Simulated assay, not measured.
Amino acid sequence: MTHKRKIFAGMSAIAAASLVLTGCGGGGGGDVDADGNVVIELAQWWEPELPDGALRGLMDQFEEQNPGIKVELLSGPYASTREQLVTGAASGTMPDVVGLDGAWVNDFAKQGAIADLSALMTEHDYDDSQLASQVEVDGSTYMVPAVNFVYPLYTNDALLADAGVDAPPSNRTEFADAARAITEAGDAAGTAMPLSLETPSGVQNQVMSWLWASGGSMLKDGKPDLTNDGVTETIEYFDDLYQDGVFAPGAFTMKEQDMVEEFTNGRVGMMVDSLAHLTMIRESNPDLKFSISALPAEDGYDGKRGIPYASWGLGVSESSDHKEEAWKLFEFLMSEDANAELASMAKAFPGNVASVPDFVEDDELMSQAFDIYQAGYPANEFTGLPVAE
């Protein structure tokens, strides 16, 4: 880190500390207001990304169902929220309920800053079979994904047709054949591989996702197992594609956004990308005809396919003075109706397996993606690992 970056990092830490001190009142979460209501705080980056008033409306529903509890929203951009939580974890002033990224969980859990949700579930006789996924550290759950943004395969219908490919590929051989055919048919690349070291999530979303799609794992007993047959075969598969020249140029400097722009402009035939970009692609190029399908699996694999995802996760502060009330908010947000509403607002898929977001009835592509989501399982083995970022 350069001297200048150290200065900026120090300034950010000071700013984050100020946010925590003003937002948390120096304690482990909220307090009691003049009317005797317990005030709990929910810190997250979600509100700025949702329609105006949407998250507040959901909190109003919670307050109506839970007299005597009020919720204060502490909202900010993703990076600012992380800085606030890092400082709160160090000072014991973390808000009662926190929005979490899976990459943060291990550090917070090891610091004792976030509560053991497995213990809270047991204490409250909570049925965790309703949860689509959980993020664990040392065998205990510390984060539950509230909504998930999954990464399916996008395919350009016209480029596939011009290359003589009748349907989106469903296995690795079909994908490799389609990528070669698209590349040979014209000016577009078969696929893209954003592997810039500035944003190392590329190896997660673009490479390991194919391992998970075939039911594989890069871990053994919770530890890295990066030389097992599944990982090795996945890496060799992409090396073969790279040697065949089917990737868009600049793979090792390309970022995810660059890949999306190339696909949107018809210069890439297939890509693995987040559904969060679906609306942007449609708005940027209304004439683009494309399809969504499950990630191709190993030839002959017929089991459930892991689906890479990013999520808005939920956790509870270990230092909260109102852990009982915090648990009630957690339980509300993960309930069937409230979780469906949150997912609908976010245009994401719910963390409760029984929840159905309303947009799947009105959007054919999203309906197809939801079917893929329900047929598989959320898979991201980086969540919960040390220094996962």
Rank of each mutant, 00 (worst) to 15 (best):
L100G: 10
D138P: 02
P152I: 00
F108T: 08
A113K: 13
E64T: 12
S129C: 10
E136D: 13
G139L: 13
V71Q: 04
D116F: 04
N148F: 08
G92V: 04
T122Y: 02
F62L: 06
R82H: 01
L159Q: 02
S91Q: 07
D96G: 10
P77R: 01
S118E: 07
Q111C: 07
M94S: 10
E83D: 13
E72Q: 15
E123S: 12
Q111L: 15
E123F: 05
V137M: 12
Q61Y: 05
I114H: 06
D128R: 08
A115Y: 02
D96W: 02
P95H: 11
D116E: 10
D127C: 01
S80C: 03
V137D: 13
I69K: 04
A163I: 01
F108R: 11
E123I: 02
Y142S: 09
L85H: 07
Y78R: 07
A90H: 11
V165W: 11
P67G: 13
T141L: 07
P168A: 14
V135T: 10
A119H: 09
D125Q: 05
T122Q: 14
M94L: 14
D107N: 13
Y78L: 09
I69T: 13
L153E: 13
H124C: 08
S133D: 14
D128F: 09
A103H: 14
V147R: 00
V135W: 05
A158H: 01
K110V: 06
E136G: 01
P67Q: 11
S140Q: 14
K110F: 14
D166N: 09
A163F: 09
A161L: 03
S129T: 11
S140D: 13
E136N: 13
K110R: 15
G76E: 09
S133A: 14
D162E: 14
D162C: 05
E63F: 04
Q111G: 06
G112Y: 11
E72R: 15
M121D: 07
T81Y: 01
G88L: 03
T141N: 04
N66T: 12
Q84T: 08
Q84K: 06
A109N: 09
G112P: 09
E136P: 01
L73Q: 08
A132G: 04
S140M: 07
S140F: 01
S133Y: 12
A161H: 02
V97W: 03
A109I: 00
V135M: 10
D116Q: 06
D138A: 15
D138T: 02
Y151E: 06
T93Y: 07
V71M: 08
E63C: 14
G68H: 04
W104I: 02
A109F: 03
Q134D: 05
L120C: 07
L85W: 00
G68C: 04
A90I: 06
E136H: 07
T93S: 10
G76A: 08
V86G: 06
E83H: 10
A163E: 06
L159Y: 01
A115K: 11
P77I: 00
Q134M: 11
V135H: 12
V137F: 10
V150N: 08
A132I: 06
D128I: 02
D127Y: 03
V165F: 08
L100A: 03
E123N: 11
M121R: 05
D166I: 04
D162F: 02
D125V: 01
M94W: 05
L131P: 02
